[in-house]
Write a protein that binds this DNA or RNA. Structure first.
Length: 271
DNA sequence: CCGACAACCTGACGGC
DNA sequence: TGCCGTCAGGTTGTCG
């Protein structure tokens, strides 16, 4: 479930555990996830002190005092298990601080990734260089969306999923934001009325902030009850609710598939 | 530029 | 209990 809010929650959970702490051990239980781990990953992290835990789009960034930044991506199924009672299947990398806190990067499907790059070059790294603005940052808004949507025939759904336009949205929150803004997911970007674009510019951060708030509240002392960071149940308005009544008009929520991914929407309220 | 599709992997779930 | 098909929050590349 890692879209922007989940990654934000994970990094907020890691921050108090890692910031200012040194890694005593980093155990790699395999040599790769989506891609091979960088050479010397374990050695380069062991003994390093964490300066900051932050986020860009769906990437978690961990800066160290050695001038390196660990770039982590949770893929589809990645989780950070905090002080796990025991090791679990798919605990691929285990970080242990000198204070004895343990974090296990668990990722069943192995679509996640770990990269280590010079902190000074992080923003220019190929993974991050092409990303659009943060939807919760100052560069995001109706004007910027208007420029990105103008003259586009591509569906609004596809444009919002395009990380070069806005960085951090995934399938769930795109569905939710489009519902909130009253925009049909298949509507061509260029045909979205200005008023709806403004609504969308409000809906996107609203939906994300609500999710972050829900995640944060379920975190308590930095972890869900099962020690997992980053995943929390949340009631969605339309996502995953095909056939259920629209919370606004009561008509059944519909599901269509766009470029291989499910879109959930209300055909009456979203045009 | 666009969109459909496949690939990367494992697990959960429903039907039989 | 097992087997089978379907689906899953992401990213990347190919093809037409």
């Amino acid at each position: 479930m890692p879209e922007l809010p989940e990654v934000e929650t994970v990094m907020r959970g890691l921050a108090p555990v890692w910031t200012g702490q040194r890694f005593a051990r980093v155990v790699l239980n395999r040599g790769d996830l989506r891609r091979p781990f960088p050479d010397g990953l374990g050695q380069r992290l062991t003994g390093a002190t964490v300066l900051a835990c932050r986020r860009r789009a769906k990437y978690g960034l961990v800066d160290t005092d050695r001038g390196d930044t660990l770039i982590l991506h949770l893929g589809m199924s990645g989780r950070m298990r905090l002080d796990p009672a025991e090791t679990a299947k798919h605990d691929h990398v285990v970080f242990e601080t000198e204070a004895g806190r343990v974090v296990a990067f668990n990722d069943a499907r192995r679509f996640g990734s770990l990269d280590l790059v010079a902190t000074a070059d992080v923003d220019r790294h190929p993974l991050l260089a092409g990303l659009g603005p943060e939807p919760l940052g100052p560069a995001f808004g109706a004007a910027m969306l208007g420029r990105a949507f103008a003259d586009r025939l591509a569906p609004a759904k596809a444009l919002l999923l395009d990380q070069r336009i806005v960085a951090g949205l995934g399938n769930i929150y795109v569905c939710e934001a489009l519902f909130e803004a009253g925009i049909h997911p298949a509507r061509a970007g260029g045909s979205v009325a200005t008023a709806r674009l403004k609504a969308l510019a409000k809906a996107v951060p609203a939906v994300l902030e609500a999710a972050i708030a829900a995640g944060g509240s379920s975190l308590r002392d930095h972890a869900a009850p099962d020690g997992t960071l980053g995943y929390f149940q949340k009631g969605f308005q339309v996502y995953g609710r095909a056939g259920e009544p629209c919370p606004r008009c009561g008509r059944p929520i519909e599901r269509i598939v766009q470029s291989g991914r499910s879109s959930f929407f209300c055909a009456h309220d979203q045009r």
